[in-house]
Design a protein around this nucleic acid. Sequence first.
DNA 1: TTGTAAGCGTTATCAT
DNA 2: ATGATAACGCTTACAA
Lengths: 334, 334
Amino acid sequence: MRDVAKLSGVSISTVSRVINSSANVDIATRIKVEENIKKLRYKPNLLAKGLRIGSGNLIGLLVPDAMHYTFASFISYIEEYVTARDHSLVLGSTNNNPILEEKIVEDLIRRNVDGIIFSRVSDQSRVMRILNTTEVPVVIIDRTFPNEEIPTVALNNEKAGELAAEHLAELGHTAIACITGPMNISICRERLHGFVTKLKEYGVTLNERYIFEGNFKHESGLKAVNHFMESNLGITALWAQNDLMAIGAIKGFQSKGIRIPHQVSIIGMDDIELAKIFIPALTTIRQPFREMCENAVKMLLRETNESKKIIVEPTLSIRESTSRLGEVGATSEG
Amino acid sequence: MRDVAKLSGVSISTVSRVINSSANVDIATRIKVEENIKKLRYKPNLLAKGLRIGSGNLIGLLVPDAMHYTFASFISYIEEYVTARDHSLVLGSTNNNPILEEKIVEDLIRRNVDGIIFSRVSDQSRVMRILNTTEVPVVIIDRTFPNEEIPTVALNNEKAGELAAEHLAELGHTAIACITGPMNISICRERLHGFVTKLKEYGVTLNERYIFEGNFKHESGLKAVNHFMESNLGITALWAQNDLMAIGAIKGFQSKGIRIPHQVSIIGMDDIELAKIFIPALTTIRQPFREMCENAVKMLLRETNESKKIIVEPTLSIRESTSRLGEVGATSEG
DNA sequence: TTGTAAGCGTTATCAT
DNA sequence: ATGATAACGCTTACAA
């Protein structure tokens, strides 16, 4: 910067003004300075700038597992929106390790980030402490904490359950089961509640024997099928609260010679890439991840008036793994 | 920091020494200072530190697409290794857009990153220019540029092709096809070369009619199958240069009533999560992504003596989609 | 062992 | 419209 100033015969303050396109600078000097910036390949130092203005021009993103589909989506979309706003993204993966999470958050704060996006934060109180102890804006994405005033963007999980219920009920099913995620996670309870409630509207009651608590992994689907088969409930339709478990369930049924969707209709949730590719292609509840991420970034950067909770709506994606009760599905079982 | 110094009755240089655990500081004052750091919840500012010592304590990672399995893996592993070394990861996704790539790189340099990891860089010359114009260490992961001295960690892609060939040939197949990635990418050519060469050792010649150039997407597998079926080559085995295309091929065959692996053996590459879950579970060539990432980080941070090229070896993962010619596979077709 | 002071590369205030 | 200068929060000779 000094070199540019010297070469241009001006002071560094003028160079600074040129860089920040300040109004009050003579057009001639501006051009000269800009030329010399190019000539000297001068690149303003963001650390110095950040130190001075008290902002690192960074957004922090914390996820529990960067490889998982949901979070990989978040990372990808948030990076896109953050970069478009001339910020950079620093990414931390916590693996649900509170110590690590703490360390990363501390690091972010020390970097003067302009905000932090938490996805599936491990512990509500931790976030609260950060919020109370620093000025750094925080928004939580994907999971909601009902009793707090933390800015949040989340899915309407009730609605997700309702959509699944509606679809299955409309297809004529009455013996319907559900594989949930871990029930200590609120989104899972909300999803189930919506599912049960809507089903009741159709006159079908989902008692506990039709509910299997999974862990969001593929294996849960297999286990659930074994469980349901042993119970001999004669179910003809099933909703799994994520696609991985739905696919596990399909495999489980198929390995017992049961055809999908001919004998059992299955619906998932998330709409992972695999959902389209799998045979049969998976009917599923789609989450608008992109929209969620955009809202999170906008909220963080105060681009929107909404500063508390933004709820986005799921949609139903009908493919091949569900069919009308008693009817053959649209495709072969593969 | 000033506050801590004042409260402790020492100068800020002493506080600095405590923070950086410098040797020469009285144990009593150290303890006192540490107490006050806690008490005041003092968090050293990384921008100021970075400005002073000329290092942002940051590692930059550039990928073309953060959602793609390969790169999601890179992101996850590299974040892990970077964090373990008390650095932070700033992530940029280029979408193969050179303008964007340039912008992100510039930003990283201006942040005084300690190094940049490029994955699938869009343009070799660009990297070279960065290398020549700045002091920032760079390593390329996954793709290699044969004629340059850029530090690189990559797979032995020749070997990948050889493993696939060996496996298929040992199973007695002779009518063997290959779905490649885009042939303008060197790794695809290398893979094919290894495949063809090893096959020749077994006495089978792979002429052009048995080669289909795909684009690494699922659809390529379907198209390839149509192509091969129309050509009426009677192939009994096929290698796809990634799992997505392999799965597409399986779907393609199955939709024509051809059973996998009974009638056609199929082998993929990457070992994506889906490979284990798919029916039939996919035999595939596994890339040691974790090892690659560890090496990349170590190389960047000069923790290893190797400073040019590190080549890692693929391995064969045998599952259900391949079987001996004429024999029924180990599992039902699902 | 500890303190003083210079300097890292910016921006911002205040003159001119 | 431009320049001098202080300040951002830290590290590091150098001195004591």
